[in-house]
Design a binder for these strands. Structure first.
Lengths: 236, 236
DNA sequence: CGCATGATTGAAGTACGTCAACTCTTGTGG
DNA sequence: CCACAAGAGTTGACGTACTTCAATCATGCG
């Protein structure tokens, strides 16, 4: 037991455990997933679109964005990932998007082959993988509705609420959200221009719906208002 | 053998075979998927958003759309499905969208539980399911780029090309595509108004890029032009 | 045949994008 | 420690591409 504790710790540190999403519960069932830790500095591309996928990534710290880029430079950010998020899927195919760090980040890379082995062994694990993918798809659907049918203020409100929810899920109760990415990244995520994102945020500030300590640190002052705007943009 | 043939035929007709996507190759390996055939008339809702999912559907004939609807009536069509397409996933959860027939349609319903059993038995089948889901996700990504960053003419061109490709994949060489859905459905898919869709199609006609026999039957006259417009909208 | 629905076209308005100026950070080197 | 540069963010003025509103034209089904 004296020995076991440091061993477990070593396991946690050097191997990663896919705790949040994919890992089976209970110490007995821990799948032998051997991930490799990587430390990435800000604005690094760790995967290019069309690259063949070799790993599934778990974000330990920092923020990473998934981006699709058109020939003329237009960008669509598919999603942002931060601590606890999983990126990728257990199939070796071509990447649909490139992955770039928004901030310095620590990640754990799990070889796809290992996940396949784990899935072959455990139906429970396979089910968790499916549930994870389901969740990702649900996000994609909501994103499509935002991009196709929502007004700028509704998109921005929904975006802020995503981060608010994430903060609540993490156990915080201070109405504080940190937007690690630039205004351009946000606008590329929401299908808007950075100017429009700025103006909408400015309006929210003037209406005392949010308060900004600086451009990346925001307090939600009026949650119901934000929810109402996000849901159907009734306020003008 | 005289007996076997009608039995097989009966099997094909009443059970469905998930041929195109999920079915394993070779007669020996045919998974015992017992689907139930359903005949649906036009404008029928076969699944409501938030309903719990009990089946995966295979479209035999006709066209079905997946739709998300906002409180105030705005609609985002997530996708259209026609002969050979599979709708849904092997997990019993809440539906992310409602499913409505665009035309009269024949479908086969496979209980999710059966797919799970088949996946438990066959890693090969599981892999096919993953590949299918991958393909769906790729479509979602491209759709997000269209909705977030493409101009109307680029979206419409890409939409036409999807159907052109489908026609080619089905072995047709006549440059003919059939758009079973209404202009409103197309606009709700592309995040535009029906008027804009009409005007773009009208421009394509005037530029001899397409020719319309009627509003639903279209010939592609200038494929390269269509591809160029879809890819980066260079033409004005 | 006639009505209802869908498609198309035109005119007008506006929300968002574009362009540009300015300010605020942040980081670096003297 | 400050000065400066480079980048990011913000705000304003203006233009326009798309929407909205409206009228007309097809299409198809009872």
């Amino acid at each position: 037991m004296n020995i076991a504790v440091p061993v477990i710790k070593e396991f946690d540190q050097s191997v990663g455990i896919l705790t949040s999403v994919l890992q089976e519960k209970g110490p007995r069932q821990i799948s032998p997933l051997n991930g490799i830790k990587r430390k990435l500095s800000k604005n690094t591309t760790l995967l290019y679109e069309e690259d063949s996928i070799k790993h599934v990534y778990e974000v330990i710290s920092g923020t990473i964005k998934a981006v699709k880029i058109l020939a003329d430079g237009r960008r669509q950010v598919i999603g942002f990932f931060s601590a606890g998020d999983i990126i990728g899927m257990p199939l070796e195919l071509k990447a649909f998007y490139s992955l770039e760090t928004v901030t310095n980040a620590n990640i754990v890379c799990y070889p796809v082959s290992q996940l396949n082995v784990a899935m072959g062994r455990s139906p429970e694990f396979t089910k968790r993988v499916f549930q994870f993918i389901y969740g990702e798809i649900e996000k994609h659907m909501n994103h499509m509705v935002s991009l196709g049918r929502k007004r700028p203020k509704e998109r921005v409100a929904a975006f802020l609420l995503q981060y608010y929810q994430k903060s609540v899920d993490a156990g915080h109760r201070d109405n504080f959200i940190e937007l690690a990415m630039s205004r351009i990244d946000i606008s590329d995520y929401l299908g808007l221009t950075q100017e429009t994102v700025c103006r909408v945020l400015g309006r929210f500030k003037r209406n005392n719906i949010i308060e900004a300590r600086n451009s990346h640190e925001i307090f939600v002052l009026d949650l119901p208002a934000l929810q109402q705007i996000a849901q159907s943009g009734l306020l003008h």
